[in-house]
Amino acid sequence: MKFRTLFAAAVIGAAGFAPAVTAAEPQEVRQEMMKKVGGATGAMAKMVKGESDFDAAAALAALTTISEVAATYGEQFPEGSDTGFESEAAPAIWTDRAGFDAKLAEFKEDADAAVAAAPADLDALKAVFGPLTQNCGACHETYRLKSS
């Protein structure tokens, strides 16, 4: 009984504490999100380059990951999160928020279209991979600064 109470208290305590642990700074959250996109892009790029075999399920999973990131990525740029935690966000995100949001919307649209296409072979993947990944540079051209 005592053990159970302690256990329950520990669970409740952990649950209460958890948000504080996971509520990372937006700079870190968005960096993690971009790393996910990088991982998903890399998995598909290896197929496109012929370094790994085409795998429809893996390709769809990668596209889905990218679409999910694109859906909420814009929320990770609140005012005041422009610097710190090795952020490479450009000031233009905040001085030209509409332009940034428009780029994100295009990214989301292309990602959703790629998921909907559900590429069944390598040629179908190549057909969505190029247009989708054009978004990377198109946004980084204006809204990301290199710090090293």
């Binding site: 540079g137 198109a138 600064l145």
Partner: peptide, 9 residues
């Protein structure tokens, strides 16, 4: 699989 950015695009 980060991408090119800035003027380098």
């Amino acid at each position: 699989f980060d991408s090119v950015g800035g003027s380098m695009v």
